[in-house]
Amino acid sequence: MNMRQSLTAVIERNTTLTGEFTTEPYEAAWAGEARWFVRVLDAAGRRPRLVARTQISPDGLHWCDLDETDQSISPADGPVHSWPATGFGGWLRLRGTVVDEAADPAPDESARLKVLIYLALKA
C-alpha cells in the first residue's frame, strides 16, 4: 500500500492577532487536500471575532482570495475552528481581520485573539 503523505504545519503559534493581518506564505503544491485549524487560546474585547479568507498565489508574492467565503471565528463558538481549502494550486495563506462586534468599544478594549493556526496537508 502506498501511504499518503501528510504534513501539519503550525503557521502561527501563540500569536496575538489584532486588526488586519496576513499569515506567512506556505508552499503546498504537493498536497491534494488542505484544511485550516484555528485554536483560540485567549481573547480580549467585548465581542471579538476573527473574519478570515483563504488566499492563494502562483508565486508566493502575489495573492488573491480562493473564493468569496468568509470564515467567522468567534471564541463564543468554542476553542477550535476548521475549514477546508480545495483547488488551491501552489501556495496558501490566510488574510483576516479581528473585529469587535460590540458597538462603540472603549479605546482600551481593542479586540484581539491569541491563536494557534495549523495547516493540515495531505497528498
Partner: peptide, 19 residues
C-alpha cells in the same frame, strides 16, 4: 525560540519561471 517557522516541501517556484 518560539517562532522558527515550519519547514516547507518546496517546488522552488518563482514568479518569472514557475516551478
Amino acid at each position: 525560540m518560539s517562532d522558527f517557522r515550519p519547514p516547507q516541501l518546496s517546488s522552488c517556484s518563482f514568479f518569472d519561471v514557475g516551478t
